[in-house]
Simulated assay, not measured.
Amino acid sequence: MKLNWSDVTPRVDYLDRRAFMVAGMAAGMAGLAPPAMALTGRPSALSTDEKPNTIAEITNYNNFYEFGTGKEDPARNAGSLTTDPWSVEIGGMVERPGSYSVADLAPENALEERIYRLRCVEAWSMVIPWIGVPLAAVLNKIGVQPGAKFVAFETLMRPEEMPGQQRAILDWPYREGLRIDEAMHPLTILATGLYSDPLPNQNGAPIRLVVPWKYGFKSIKSVVRITLTDQQPSCTWQDMQPQEYGFYANVNPQVDHPRWSQATERRVGSGLFAGRQDTLPFNGYADQVASLYQGMDLAKNY
């Protein structure tokens, strides 16, 4: 049975979440969104029935190098990011190129709730209740030309608001890409919300990619450009360290990172004595996506 987040999150956790947000706003904590109308997404059969992490865990432990390299840096530094107004430039091999607002891409009446596992390449994991729309629905509305084979994504470049970009930590702006069949897969979404609230800045506001069977770095945040192309796009981590970060980045417990094992993972928030859990092929989504890679050597196409 597939559940939505309110079914699997104990009420006390939900009330703690609200209390945390109110207290955070009162204290001026960076990156938490101001009070806003709740987002409502239709429950999806594609959601996991695993218990989601709390809002505090999700918003205070993550990677977003544009705001710093520490896990708490995004929450500490993201409050300066301006997310309204926002537009996403969509171009390349599409029928209707142009500049689109978040509401254009993810209208309220199209939102779905997707409770997904997240597996970081650093061997930690979470369960996150996203609110968003299938990327395929967006691309179908834009009109994909027949020759398009890949989708390229680019993050905002604004060093005056994103202090991490003031240093050459990465080759800015951050870039990622998917093969067209990966982009069109029903699991792939553009997320605009977390639990029932708009995305916090530190989690990729106002719109980000979520591809749950791939390592987290593929799910690019704060997207400002989407380009359809017939060439494999440039990807930031792959370009910087190709021996460690491949284009596909599918979760694969049998292919280790050169500096650590990928066979197990630590679930954030599971407690000091919970131990590690086995990592599942394709992060547990093999039944849905393994056919995309039939005949490929996933040790070479990592």
Rank of each mutant, 00 (worst) to 15 (best):
G204Y: 02
Q165Y: 08
E244I: 01
F150I: 06
K71M: 14
K221C: 05
L15Q: 11
R225I: 01
M29Q: 14
R175K: 15
P200G: 04
W237L: 13
F67P: 06
R117G: 03
P258Q: 01
T192H: 07
P242H: 07
V22I: 13
I115P: 08
I189P: 09
D84E: 13
T236D: 03
P10C: 09
P10F: 08
Q202I: 01
L135H: 10
P97L: 07
P85T: 05
T40F: 12
Q243V: 00
V224N: 11
F20N: 10
I58Q: 11
G147E: 14
V22D: 10
G70H: 09
V251E: 00
L111D: 05
R175V: 09
G193Y: 04
G98D: 06
C235E: 13
R266I: 07
D278I: 00
V224E: 07
D171E: 12
W260M: 03
A274Q: 00
A152I: 04
W130S: 10
Q202K: 00
Q294Y: 00
G79L: 02
G79Y: 06
R11G: 01
L118Y: 03
A56K: 15
L199C: 09
E176V: 04
T69S: 15
R225Q: 11
I220S: 07
Q294I: 01
Y215R: 02
M93A: 11
W86K: 12
V224I: 14
A36W: 04
D181Q: 14
V211R: 02
L178P: 09
E265S: 12
E182L: 11
P85W: 10
I58G: 02
L135K: 08
K214P: 10
L228M: 05
V8K: 12
Y174E: 13
I58N: 09
R266L: 10
P200C: 02
A26E: 03
N301Y: 08
Y116K: 09
N62E: 08
L272T: 11
Q277V: 14
R18V: 15
S234Q: 08
P253I: 02
M21L: 15
G41L: 09
T59A: 12
Q231R: 14
N201R: 15
A148F: 07
T192Y: 07
I58R: 07
A205K: 09
F20G: 12
M93L: 15
R96G: 03
Q262E: 09
A136T: 11
D73C: 05
A26S: 08
D278M: 10
R158D: 14
A78N: 08
I115Y: 06
N77G: 01
A136C: 03
N140S: 13
Q241P: 00
G91P: 04
A38L: 14
M157Q: 12
S291C: 02
S261V: 02
M37T: 15
T264H: 02
P253R: 01
L139F: 08
F20L: 06
V133H: 06
R96V: 03
G284C: 07
E154S: 12
N60C: 11
D256W: 03
V8D: 07
P134N: 09
Q288F: 05
E66M: 14
V8F: 04
D278W: 00
